[in-house]
Structure formats: C-alpha cells, structure tokens
Nucleic acid binder design. Sequence first.
DNA 1: CTTTCGACTTTGAACGTTCAAGACCGTGAG
DNA 2: CTCACGGTCTTGAACGTTCAAAGTCGAAAG
Lengths: 327, 327
Amino acid sequence: MAEKVTIATVAARAQVSRQTVSNVLNSPQLVREETRRRVEEAIATLGYRINQAARQMRTGRSQLLAVRIEPTRDGINGSVLDRFLHGLTFAAAAAGYRVMLYTADDDGDEIKTFDNLLASYDLDGFVLTGTDHGDVRTFWLAERGVQFVTFGRPWDEPERHSWVDVDNADGTAQATRRLIDTGHRRIGFIGWPSGSGVGDDRREGWQRTMKAHDLDPTGLDRGAADGIAQGAECARDLLTTAEPPTAFVCASDSLALGALQAAGGRTAVIGFDDTPVAQAIGLTSVSQPLPEAAARCIDLLIDHLDGHPVGTTQVLLEPSLMIRTTA
Amino acid sequence: MAEKVTIATVAARAQVSRQTVSNVLNSPQLVREETRRRVEEAIATLGYRINQAARQMRTGRSQLLAVRIEPTRDGINGSVLDRFLHGLTFAAAAAGYRVMLYTADDDGDEIKTFDNLLASYDLDGFVLTGTDHGDVRTFWLAERGVQFVTFGRPWDEPERHSWVDVDNADGTAQATRRLIDTGHRRIGFIGWPSGSGVGDDRREGWQRTMKAHDLDPTGLDRGAADGIAQGAECARDLLTTAEPPTAFVCASDSLALGALQAAGGRTAVIGFDDTPVAQAIGLTSVSQPLPEAAARCIDLLIDHLDGHPVGTTQVLLEPSLMIRTTA
DNA sequence: CTTTCGACTTTGAACGTTCAAGACCGTGAG
DNA sequence: CTCACGGTCTTGAACGTTCAAAGTCGAAAG
C-alpha cells in the first residue's frame, strides 16, 4: 500500500508550506506562477487528491448534493426520474459535486431527512422534484438558508425560489398543432382533474391552441387520475358523444395508452413524457429535455452555492414532439 | 441560528468527558448504565447528531456506498435499475449508510471513478450491476481491498466474490411451465445470442423445462440483440417454420413486445423483467424481486464492512411470474 | 494493611485541511 | 534614510471526532 499523500507530502516535495499548496488549489491567483507550477507538478507526480472530509471539517462544505429517489409510482412514469437522475449525476460530477440519494414516504418524512443529512453530512444543497402547491419543503429549506433548486415551478408564486421547468403548455400546444396540421378538427384532451399545476398547464396549451385555430374546445375535455384504465374510460366517454373527437392529446403516456386501447386505432393519440412505453409501442409523445433540465438545475444550484445570491432564477425549457406512429 | 452541538456540548451537559459520549455512541457496553442514560438524555434534548466528516477523518470510514447510474440503455429496461436503486437507498439508510451516484462511460472510466471516489470521499464500498465475463472492475477493487457486492454473478468463477442474483433459469422455467400448463406444446424461445451469462441462463431454463416435459426444443430457439424489432424478426422467423410455435418465452420485455406485435395476438407471449411497459400493456412477465435483491446486497456489503470477511457469500433469489393477459 | 484487579472514566494527541495572522522582501514615496 | 505597501509565502490554531494511554475508585486477594 502506498503511503497516504496529504497536502504536507506535496508541500515537502515542492519545497513550500502547506498553505501554499492549499492556495494553489483554492486561490491560485495568490501564488507566483513559478511556484504554482512546481506545486502542480508535485501534485501530479504524487497523485495527490484532496481529502473531502478534512476540507469539509474546516469549510463546512461537502460538495454533496442530495436528491430524493421515489419508488416508481404508477410504473409508467417513473423512468422520467431515472433519466433526470443520470443527467444530474453527470452534470454535478463535471462541476466537482457528487449526488447522494435519499428516500422519503412523504413531505414530513422528507423534512426529517433534510435535517439528518444537513446535520450529519453537511450537505450543500438539494434538488427537489415534483413540487406541489404551497410546498412545505421549500419553506423549511428557505427558512434555514439551505440552498435548493426545484425541477418544477412553484405554481402559487413563481419567483419565490429558483427552478427549472419544462413548458408543459407548449408541449400540448405542439401536440395539438401537429394534429391540426394533419387534418384533425375535433381534438379531445384527456388530462388530470384541475388543481394540479402541471395538469392545468398541459390542458391550457391544448385549449389555447384550439382557440387560436378557431376550433371550439368546449366539451372535448375530460379529467381523471393518472392511469391506463382512467385514460380508456375518458376516451370511451368522449367517443360516445354526439360529435366524437378524431384525435386525443393526453396529459401522460398512461392516459394515452388507455385512450389508444379504447379507441382501437381509430383515432390519433399523443401522449406526454416520452416514456419507454411510448418508445416501445410507437406512441407519439411530448418529450421533456431531461438531461438539459438536470444540467440547468445543477448550474443554478452551484451559482447559489458559489454565492451569487442576487435573487432567484427561473428557467423554462421547451419540450419537443417525438413523432411516431400514433399521430 | 442555534449554536452548533458537538460531542463537547453533550459532554458538558451530561457532566462527562468527550470520550464517554463517544463511547455511548460507539461502544455502549463500556459505559455504566446510569451514565449512558444521562448521556443519551443530553443527546436527545440537545438534538445532537454526529458529524460524519470529523468521524471519517479519524476512522477513515464515510458510511457512504456508491452505485453507478447508467443512461437508460434501450429505454425499456432502464426501469429495472430505477427500482433497484430505490431499494438500495432504502436499505442502506436503515443500516446507517447513504448511497452516492456516479456515472461512467465504460469499465475503464468506471475504474478511474473508483479511484477518485476512494481518494476524495473515502467510500466504504460499491454495489456493481451488470457484471460481464472476466469483469476488470471486480479485479481492480479486490486488488485494493475495497469491499463490493455485485448484483449479477461472475459467470466464470462463482465464488470469487460476494454477489446477489436472480435465478434467471428458474424464471424462464416458470414461464415455460405456465405455458405448458395452459396447453401449449410448441413453445419457442426468443433470446440473445449465446455468450452472455444472463442470456444463456434464461435460455437454459426454457430448454430444461421443455425436456423435462418430453417436449423437443430443437429448432424453436432464436437469438438476437435486445430490441423490439429484433423480437418481431425472430418471432416472424419462427412462425413461418413448418411447425410454428403457439407460444413464446422471451429473454426480455423488449423482445416479447416485438414478438407480440409480429404474432398479432395469435400466440401467447411471456416477457422478462416486468418493466413498466409490461404492466402497461398487460404482458405476462417474469418479475425480479428487486427490493429484496437490493436489501440483500446491502446486507452482504455491510457484513463485509463490519469485518466478517470469512470468505464470500452468494445469494440467489427466485423470480416470480406476473400473469397478465398475454399468457 | 497493602496490593492487584477490573470496571469505568478522563486526558492529550492526531486525522488533513483552511483560516487568521504575520513574516519577509523589494519598490517607490516622502 | 525611513516607512508604507503589495506581493508572496509561512506559522499556529482550529474544525469534531476517536485512538491510545493513563487515571480513579472500590472490592477482592494476599
């Protein structure tokens, strides 16, 4: 086993003091060019790597970010988180941070976990997903001055904290436009009951686009909990009206899948989230730019951590339509 | 902001020395009952939480485990990792450990990451997924005395290290038996080209079960890379033979989905992995007990970390058949 | 009565880093 | 000539924990 290489080893080798090595690492502008090179060379030849624990003890910063991993909820939408996580981990590593996972049963439990992680591991920040109206977690964190960024905006008060989100309305608008372009005039929307920020946003994109093309959305709109059965139910309901729609825009791939089954291939269907299921069965779906969203979350969080705390920043990303066989 | 609570704060409050508090935490049997209670009370009322960084600096242990998160490969099977990760995080937390993520492009890159993580964060152990024949990663880790457990066995030499795996052959055997029980006699197998441990194991379960029921598997077997198109291809190929099969056992849900499309509902199909796609479209599929697998990985790893290093341990778990509409 | 022992507790040092303070040196202003 | 100054580098202390060693005390043994 090779000897442990510390800052002192490097210092001895480069004939400087510990502090100078530390300065080369953290404030290179304080060190003379030639000295810096000598130290850097020593670091390279010795293979020195900074000891995070020791640094953390002094500075109180751990270079660690945390994200909650949820149990795959309804099975079909869980993969969104999976891809997002990969993006986060990748972007964080590029910035010298690492991502730690935690689980929680509910918001209260999650707050307890915040407390633990902060006390024991000195976490630098959190990335929260799936924010609700009046999210207690964000208040708790803000109160304690803990940095965080959410993926998903706070619907009640947009500028309360920094966030990254995908323009849901634009996604359904693109979907609706696609259907109009391919000749559809009666386009139904199958979404969630109103009250959820994301759901309402997705509905609004459809509605807005219909009106913009002088199409009347009245009565073409159904809402139910997320799920394949619910999607089928809504589709059947709409298909038995006097003037049934010829196409559906859906708020999720689950609902879309249900609609697809209920309609038996007679109507065009577009889903939302571009899950593996959509890719597998050829469902046209709105795709969120998850790697980019993750990267922007990390950017924002690190901006805050590095102390550019001038207010909050919001990032809204455009989704894109993955055109396959169902529309 | 409340004052920082350290071991010294607790010690003062409980009228004992730092070391005694430390002992209550780490070796309670050394401390007199009454003292222990006094200290525990002080810990509780002060809300003391141990500082991992400081502990780690002294002991060299971080209570951190690492897992690689892969980019969702072909989109359809990625969710396996997702569920496994959740299980890991949950089980680790219960044992006082946390899970850290990292990404890597290939095995070489992953080894570089090992090195970094070990040097900077003093990681305690790794959970590896998707081991290949002659996996370089496991040799690298073993050489350095780093603890790890793999999810997936080393096919060349089973007892080289500890692992947890699911009995793939048993999964396809269950699937085949189910088809036989429901009256099928000519049952085809669509898998991967031979050479991959997992793939060969899954093929073997089918073959063995066919023979055990006096059914001849000859010529009922196709292999291709994983994917929906490939599954469809194989199914079409088998269906155009002189005596076409009436049912398919497939090595993955992707292949199964292809087979399903190619057969147009005329044959029974069983997939493998019970992905969200299977749940969504009603595909009967072999389900791996992922939460349990994850928990056993953590158990094994922690056993090693706590220094019960008497050889290696292997755990083989039984999958279960999720019966839906396709078989 | 002294010694030994064991159960329990305390003390000082150390882990590797960065902060705060200060030392050194050559330059230019007064 | 003196002094202040900026640039560069060094020193001692501190972060919160645990290790190693030593101290205290009462009971049992000689």
